[in-house]
């Protein structure tokens, strides 16, 4: 049984009271559906994360010029619900 309340909190999603039951039913049905994977014989298969075979693509440790553009910086910050000067304003993280 999936503990929807716990998962929702891990996922930082608020749920209404009657929503817990609804999502529990739906998520159980999807998990039943994906159970099928247990039938697949995967011995000897390496996991695939990047399908083109790219591994650890690195770049120089320099800021991309795009992010130095003052207009873009201003526009990015303009989308923030709360800001102070050139910073995002966040509620206290540590009590």
């Amino acid at each position: 049984m999936i503990d929807v309340k716990h998962i929702a909190k891990l996922a930082r999603l608020g749920l209404g009271k009657d929503e817990e039951k609804k999502f529990e039913k739906e998520l159980e049905a999807i998990l039943d559906f994906v159970e099928k994977l247990n039938e697949a014989k995967t011995e000897g298969a390496e996991p695939t994360a990047q399908i083109t075979g790219a591994i650890n693509v690195s770049r120089e440790d320099k800021t991309e010029p795009l992010w130095e553009n003052p207009e873009i910086k201003k526009d990015i910050l303009a989308n923030a619900p709360a800001k102070e000067g050139k910073f995002f304003r966040v509620k206290r993280v540590l009590e």
């Binding site: 298969a45 390496e46 996991p47 695939t48």
Partner: peptide, 11 residues
């Protein structure tokens, strides 16, 4: 789940 699915993806 996730690791199993990544292996199936390879197959």
């Amino acid at each position: 789940y996730y690791l199993k699915a990544q292996k199936v993806r390879t197959l």
